[in-house]
Design a protein around this nucleic acid. Structure first.
Ligand code: MN
Ligand code: MN
Ligand code: ZN
Ligand code: ZN
Lengths: 144, 144
DNA sequence: GCCTATAATGAGAATCATTATCAACAAGCC
DNA sequence: GGCTTGTTGATAATGATTCTCATTATAGGC
């Protein structure tokens, strides 16, 4: 029961929902993989332990509580990953062939620069900026 | 018939498809608006002149030919905009409230830096990079 | 202009991800 | 144990997108 799990439990308590076995399953699957997963992919990753309809509802609950974040990809597929306050800030390599998403981290100096720019350009556009994400698309090692 | 249209005609010819009236309608609607549009939104924008099923097919043809590019948003909705070689390279401010997407341009120096980083981190990940896009999410002026 | 081959269109059916329902179930509390 | 309320899971409904196929338009060849 790592620190993370305590924080998640707490966050769900604040949201007024229980941290049930099914929800723990989904969280632990998301923690174990390295990029965002769709409901169907999660269902498989858990060996069918949690039915698809429950995966969807669980993801909605976790998103509402701020534990996971959605990522909208090709073919109308939404994948989820642990929220940034749990997984750390990062960006994505997206394969235009198979849709796989890989996490990447930028070197701190560029990240700082980006952060500064985002604030600047946002205020100029009267836009209240929350997060940001750099998406690089191309072909993954398997799809070359 | 602006320069753009010549280039598009040429590109479609290379792709071995015709630049028909319906396809011209869709292109001109996308050129006239200021953010990416979905198939349904395009259908409306054109006053129903092109049936929805044809809009979808047309967008697929235009994407295949590299004339338009998809943008994947919430609720499984895909919106299209003119490709970068026609509209210019830019990034996006995405409103988490109403879904509106606004185009932004980064200052050249940061763009150069980004480009360099994208190439670097991609080769390290055995990833063949195509384009990249920085998405900033937050609340637009209207939704504050 | 007319013919023919081929590309494109449009109405509707089919598909697929997601969401809503609702009856059965589990947890917390007295 | 009963009671209350949150949770689950099978299934139906929804909505965006894709497919099908009969019809129509277009480009050449004559
Ligand atoms: Mn990620
Ligand atoms: Mn744009
Ligand atoms: Zn791939
Ligand atoms: Zn807005």
């Amino acid at each position: 029961m790592p620190v993370q799990d305590r924080q998640i439990e707490e966050r769900l308590a604040e949201a007024g929902v229980r941290y049930t076995a099914g929800r723990r399953h989904v969280v632990s699957a998301l923690e174990r993989v390295d990029g965002p997963l769709s409901a169907a992919e999660l269902h498989l990753e858990m060996g069918g332990a949690v039915p698809v309809s429950s995966v969807y509802r669980t993801l909605a609950v976790l998103e509402e509580a701020g534990v996971v974040e959605p990522h909208h990809g090709a073919r109308g597929i939404t994948r989820y990953e642990m929220a940034e306050w749990l997984a750390g800030h990062h960006h994505h390599l997206v394969c235009i062939e198979c849709g796989a998403v890989e996490d990447i981290e930028l070197p701190a100096p560029l990240e700082v620069e980006l952060e500064r720019l985002v604030g600047q350009v946002s205020s100029w556009a009267s836009f209240s900026a929350g997060g940001h994400s750099l998406e690089v698309d191309g072909r993954c090692a398997r799809c070359r």
